[in-house]
Computed example of a mutant assay.
Amino acid sequence: MTTPVSPAEVAAANLAGRLHPSQRGKVLDVVFWILLIVGVAMVLLAVILPLTTDVFSSAKSGQSLAAMPFVVLLAVLCLFFCWRRYRDLHRPLILITGWTHDFGKASCTDEYPIGMRFQSQGIMTAERRELRAGGKTYLPSREMWALIQPNRNNTLCLLPRSKVLVNVIPS
Rank of each mutant, 00 (worst) to 15 (best):
L89H: 06
F70T: 10
G122P: 07
V72G: 03
L89S: 04
R132P: 01
M144R: 10
F80H: 12
D88V: 01
F103A: 10
D102W: 06
L73Y: 02
D54G: 15
S141A: 11
F70D: 02
E111T: 11
L74R: 05
E111D: 14
W99A: 02
R87L: 13
T125I: 11
L95N: 08
L95M: 13
S61A: 11
R142H: 14
G62V: 05
L73R: 04
C108W: 08
R91W: 08
R91Y: 03
W83A: 15
T109V: 05
Q121S: 14
T53W: 03
V71I: 15
M116R: 06
A106Y: 11
T109Q: 11
D102Y: 07
V55M: 05
F70I: 13
I114C: 00
A66L: 04
G135C: 12
L93Y: 02
M116V: 11
A59T: 08
D88S: 15
A59M: 03
G98H: 01
Y86N: 10
Y112E: 13
I123C: 06
Q63F: 15
K60M: 13
R87P: 01
A67V: 06
A126G: 11
P113V: 04
A75E: 00
T100E: 04
T97E: 14
Y112W: 12
T137S: 05
R142M: 14
A126Y: 08
R91V: 01
I94R: 12
A59C: 02
F103D: 09
T109P: 10
P92D: 08
G104A: 08
T100H: 04
